[in-house]
């Protein structure tokens, strides 16, 4: 395992592989042009062997199972990742841009004097054959193409951004090692499962979601009336509305809220940041109403309506009331 230039840091929960691990594999294959030889995956956990074998057979990639002799918090994870990177001196280290990944990967980069490119959703090869990494900026309005100036470089992959392909060839090799963790600075007291989520959003055929563009909490009445025009609908919201107390948590759509897939999703005054898109991109048909013609949400919409949201809803209600349809 000495010819490895690309190191993937798998993500585990209770020693089981999390789906984001396969997103990292998809990104790695994009970088190598499909070759698995130069890729190594590190599966780090208190008891990682089963997950390591599973990863090797589901991807064909060689896997290093790293058993850590301490309960794993982000500072221990950072130590373990630095240990593996030190053994193999890869050019690229792929970590997930997940809650766990963002907790340790930037610090890992500092330890390794490495560049760290976060929330990467695309890989581009420039005219000179360099790898450039595309990341969303300005609330999703633009993509920046970033070139690392160091080796190694830590690349944090946006969950869901790369097309995961099923693999059916021979399994990769699995090796094992143990990492003696030093003292950690964090103590884990426990895990709280998700707060109350909504079966309403799960069941809804149509979701009308409100964002900061609605301007004030009083305007939620109009959003609710608008939603009521569609039988089997529910009201959702972007996170700031929940943060400001305008809507309860069970209405939140996005990476830290609910993941929804109604037949029709109507985004009202929502900019379309990656964290919101992650929760609604599986919807059947997406309609966005936003006053900014360049809002990122329009890149994820089937039907784009550039207008002031409250004025538009009022006009739509009048249209229905007057029976003009």
């Amino acid at each position: 395992m000495n010819d490895k230039t690309l190191l993937i840091m798998a993500e585990l929960e209770d020693n089981n592989l999390k789906p984001v691990t396969f997103d990292l594999v998809a990104a790695a294959l994009k970088m190598t042009g499909g070759a698995t030889r130069s890729i190594l995956m590190a599966v780090t956990g208190t008891s990682p062997d089963a997950a390591a074998s599973e990863a090797a057979s589901r991807t064909g990639i060689d896997v290093l199972a790293v058993t850590v002799t301490a309960s794993i918090t982000s500072d221990i994870r950072k130590q373990a990742a630095a240990f593996v990177a030190g053994e193999f001196a890869p050019s690229y280290i792929l970590c997930p841009h997940s809650a766990e990944g963002t907790d340790y990967a930037p610090a890992l980069a500092v330890r390794l004097n490495a560049a760290c490119i976060s929330a990467v959703s695309g890989v581009v090869i420039d005219v000179d054959g360099n790898l450039l990494f595309s990341r969303s900026i300005c609330g999703g309005q633009f993509n920046a193409l970033i070139k690392p100036a160091t080796s190694p470089a830590v690349i944090m992959i946006q969950p869901g951004a790369f097309q995961v392909q099923a693999y059916e060839g021979t399994a990769g090799a699995v090796e094992t090692t143990t990492f003696e963790a030093g003292p950690g600075a964090l103590r884990m007291n426990g895990v709280e499962k998700s707060r109350e989520t909504s079966s309403e959003l799960d069941k809804a055929k149509v979701i009308v979601s409100a964002g900061r563009g609605i301007g004030e909490p009083g305007n939620l009445d109009a959003i609710r009336r608008f939603a009521a025009l569609f039988p089997g609908s529910a009201v959702g919201g972007s996170r700031p509305l929940i943060d400001m107390g305008w809507l309860e948590y069970r209405h939140q759509v996005g990476i830290t809220g609910a993941t929804v897939s109604p037949s029709v999703y109507i985004a009202c005054g929502i900019s379309g940041s990656t964290q919101h898109i992650a929760g609604m991109n599986g919807s059947g048909y997406v309609i966005a109403i936003n006053s900014d013609p360049n809002a990122a949400i329009f890149n994820y919409s089937d039907l784009c309506i550039v207008d002031d949201i409250m004025g538009f809803i009022e006009a739509f209600e009048d249209f229905i009331k007057n029976g003009e349809g």
Binding site: G140, I146, A149, Y300, D302
Partner: peptide
């Protein structure tokens, strides 16, 4: 600096992205 920005692009459309033309009516 350990990384440089080579270019800024407009993101590609992931869906049909039909823009409704005309006035509010």
């Amino acid at each position: 600096p350990r990384q440089v920005c080579s270019a800024i692009r407009h993101p590609e459309k992931q869906r049909a992205g039909v823009v409704v033309e005309g006035g509010r009516t």
